[in-house]
Computed example of a mutant assay.
Amino acid sequence: MALSTARGAILCWWALLLSYVLLRRFTARYAIVGVLLIGIVLLLGLGQVSFASLELKPALPVLTVPVFSLNALLSVALPLFLITLTGQYMPGMLVLRNDGFKTSANPILTATGLGSLLMAPFGSHAFNVAAITAAICTGKEAHEEPARRYLAGLACGVFYLLVGIFGSTLAALFVVLPATFITTLAGLALLGAIGGSLATALVEPSGRETALITFLATAANITLFGLGGAFWGLLAGLLAHGVMHGRLRPAGRHERA
């Protein structure tokens, strides 16, 4: 028997949360997979979702000949570059450093830049370090040993290929699934990464307040001039750190005389 949308959303939220807590008690690595399966079974049982309209079919690539224009460069390319740089690269590199990977940004920028250049004619113009994916694949949940966490990246790449091949089916799936289910599942998947990052950021007492300001400003998700919360949160944290901990220039000799 189908429930109302509001009651179904509340029940789904509680079921996913309780399932995560119970599964996390026994298996941290597969907790999210279990929550996903439990959530789908629950939605089917409550009549909140139906997969009858879904059709498994591959998405065929379409070659798009690029057309260069100053208007597109300023109104599309530049904003996308800034959004990708501030919303993906910077958080992604911070996640890597927080998880113990001291990788230089230069080879990553070079590889992703060349990838964007090669794949842009096929619509993949934002080849970049995915911050959320990095947070999931580089944490302890992927593997206890940091040297073995590359397996999560390989598995992620395989699933990305499948998602790309069946992109139209995936888009239809997101339309069918309730928004509460998707957002709750995504939030639960990031709990470990968020908790670990906060624990590391708040260790040093001198930078504790600026770290909290950065986190809260980012969580507010304010969007101005096409730039998202990641950029403004980082800017707020840098300004707060500069004001509270910045050193004033010492006076010159003639001023001290």
Rank of each mutant, 00 (worst) to 15 (best):
M1T: 13
S4A: 13
A9L: 04
L11Y: 13
W13D: 03
L16I: 11
S19C: 12
Y20N: 10
R25M: 12
R29A: 15
Y30R: 00
G34L: 05
V35N: 06
L36V: 13
L36H: 04
I38K: 01
I38G: 02
I38S: 11
V41P: 03
L42I: 12
L42V: 08
L43F: 03
V49F: 14
A52T: 13
A52Q: 14
S53Y: 02
L54G: 04
E55M: 09
A59Q: 03
A59I: 00
L60Q: 10
V62N: 03
V67E: 05
L78V: 09
P79H: 03
L80D: 03
L82S: 04
I83D: 05
I83R: 13
P91N: 05
G92S: 02
G92W: 08
M93C: 01
N98E: 10
P107H: 08
A111F: 12
T112R: 04
G113W: 02
G115D: 06
L117Y: 09
M119Q: 02
G123A: 13
A131I: 05
T133I: 12
A134T: 15
A135Q: 09
A135C: 10
K140V: 13
A142V: 13
A152L: 08
G153E: 04
A155F: 09
V158Q: 00
V158L: 07
Y160V: 15
L162C: 11
L162V: 14
L162I: 14
V163N: 03
I165V: 15
S168T: 11
V175W: 04
A179V: 12
T180C: 09
T183A: 12
T184S: 15
L185I: 04
A186C: 11
G187H: 10
L191K: 10
I194S: 06
G195R: 03
S197L: 11
L198G: 01
T200V: 06
L202W: 03
L202K: 02
V203M: 07
P205S: 05
P205I: 04
S206I: 07
E209S: 08
I213L: 08
T214L: 05
L216V: 10
A217K: 05
I222P: 00
G233L: 00
A236R: 00
A240F: 10
L248W: 15
R249G: 00
R249C: 00
P250R: 01
P250V: 00
A251M: 14
R253F: 01
E255C: 10
E255D: 15
